[in-house]
Design a protein around this nucleic acid. Structure first.
Lengths: 347, 347
DNA sequence: TCCTTAATTGTTAGCGCTAACAAACGACCT
DNA sequence: AGGTCGTTTGTTAGCGCTAACAATTAAGGA
């Protein structure tokens, strides 16, 4: 095997001499390898002089600790697995960025597993993949209801933080307050004097979609308004377009709260083609505030979620679970409304 | 230390008995641990009977190989690091998905490092992070020119596949043929009879932006048309909007080839507001074909890139470098044009 | 029959690190 | 001076695995 390696190109990348070990540093600094280990790991009982000598040797040799060896003995990989189903979407992608930032700052590695389709099998596969890798914890970025069960039955030996859920049982949760977001959107429309406010929701088996619909319903009910104008889309611009075409004919509402910005884009096009003016005839509010929302026609009033912050909070919670011995809990990030030209008082 | 662990919540997640080792499987199957290792690793010289007995024991105990231990002795982590700067963008996010899919299929783990800002320092940091983790290879998803140097001077001991570049020196490359994409866009406009075709490019220090501009220029020159209508944007819808406003006043071109879909969105809005009709007055072509492009107003003619395929090819190349001893080389994915309503013959 | 060769299995060492324990050293007290 | 303590350093073992080699068995040929 080693012989074979010498012939393949991987070896071409390897410099001939091997990387320095603790032993090499120890020799150079004139101490035992254990003392070097103590310096590396910031143990308290090392004299200042020794510490400095060791640090110099580390720098001179360019020593870097071997993660595999450390993991083997500590049973910690310092790796967090992020299990995600919609990584190409704006929200999850940015949440991942937040997780990565916080993780790297804390000296953790981030490993990913993408789910092509969301099913108990695919989730089990991904979780097993992570356990094979020996991750210390898992962040589940799967916005469907029912994900929790698939993970729970696995009886994983590591902490799990579920994004977009309040966390149940042994799992911790990190979420943006979707209901609040929906309430902000509806409150804005009510303030402008709208009485008939419809909602185009995402698929109701998505936690966020259900929460937003519920927030919309609650806000309307509290204001004494009807909550009968609900249509379910599939998050895509295409579904927003299709639903928008129907709404343009029916004209049952003076304002529409749309479950995300993409569907809102489709609605705007349908309205535009049908001659329904936004916001003069109908006001439209989106959700997410993706970077393009300000350049729709007209610019979209929408609810901003700070996904990166959500990701950072996730990781903070994971670190607390891992290192401070905290128990399961929940963290909530508040959304805020961004008012643009797509909303105005009804005619 | 062990004592402290018993009190923190991490242990609460641990079942009391430790995970099975090779030795446990060996005992159960009545063979030596080495024989089990051979079965696990598909070594040829194991009798069928023994193999089956071992496999049964593995299944019964739910044995899973300890990655840290294996890495320690083989000096292979079976982990690929993906170094990316714009992970929240449609293209890079989908490329990552492709890499992840191919990697997991091949039994590799995918680790990520996101760059908040692109500089030699941040790239060096990320690369060092990966080396600390002991990755077997690095996929660089950094679309700026000059990235290569920052990586090259590090003299990494592992293969590197650079996405969006043809690969230079020791690095391999995987790219979508950007020039071809630009040529397709321009050819489509020329076919429709346009003579004055402008280009709104991305920042010229991005490799893709420069390639697209070059493709645009070549296609025009070959057709004997002027290539003097070039404006540089920053990829954002906002910059497209600003530039679109100017173009709407100047009216120097009958068609605009825009460097990406987001800027095209901004251009469409600027034109819409200024009363410039698309495609009647000016045709617009984008680049990327992100999912929303079909729902712009009007639906956008654009150039589709298959980012997932690009990611898969990256990983295929990485595997070839790692396992088959292949040398550095390049793989190219062809884009194709998607014609929608934003283009038409000039008036 | 015995030797040669191949196929299969077992034994040993060690990858680089940390935890646990042991030893050495000095400071301080009585 | 001699004991007690705390601080600093060294020694040893072993985490779970694979590579290299050794041992065993079976098969085939002279």
């Amino acid at each position: 095997m080693r012989c074979r390696l010498e012939h393949n190109s991987y070896m071409a990348y390897s410099s001939e001499r091997r990387l320095p070990r603790l032993e090499d540093v120890a020799e150079r600094a004139g101490v035992s390898h254990q003392t070097v280990s103590r310096v590396i790991n910031n143990h308290p009982n090392v004299s200042k002089a020794t510490r400095e000598r060791v640090e110099a040797a580390v720098a001179e040799l360019g020593y870097r600790r071997n993660t595999a060896a450390r993991s083997l003995v500590t049973r910690r990989s310092h790796t967090i697995g992020v299990l995600a189903s919609e990584l190409s979407q704006y929200g999850p992608a940015n949440t991942l960025l937040g997780v990565e930032q916080a993780a790297r700052n804390a000296g953790y590695f981030v490993s990913i597993a993408a789910l092509r389709e969301v099913s108990a099998d695919s989730i089990t596969d991904a979780a097993r993949h992570f356990m094979d890798q020996g991750v210390d914890g898992i962040v589940a970025l799967v916005p469907h209801a029912g994900t929790l069960q698939a993970l729970e039955v696995l009886n994983l030996d590591v902490p799990v933080v579920v994004v977009g859920s309040s966390g149940e049982g042994r799992f911790s949760g990190a979420m943006v307050d979707q209901k609040l977001g929906a309430r902000l959107a509806v409150a804005h429309l009510i303030e402008q004097g709208h009485k008939r406010i419809g909602h185009i929701s995402g698929p109701q088996d998505w936690i966020d979609a259900a929460e937003r619909a519920e927030g919309w319903r609650e806000a309307l009910t509290e204001a004494g308004l009807d909550d009968d104008l609900l249509v379910e889309g599939d998050w895509s611009a295409g579904s927003g377009y299709g639903i928008g075409q129907k709404l343009a004919v029916e004209r049952s509402a003076t304002a529409v709260f749309v479950g995300n910005d993409q569907m809102a884009l489709g609605v705007l096009r349908a309205f535009g083609e049908a001659g329904v003016r936004v916001p003069e005839d109908v006001s439209v509010v989106g959700f997410d505030d993706q970077p393009e929302a300000g350049y729709f026609m007209p610019p979209l009033t929408t609810v901003r979620q700070d996904f990166e912050e959500l990701g950072r909070r996730c990781m903070d919670m994971m670190l607390a679970l891992l290192e401070d011995g905290a128990g399961a809990r929940t963290t909530v990030v508040d959304p805020r409304i961004v008012v643009r030209a797509s909303t105005a008082p009804p005619a």
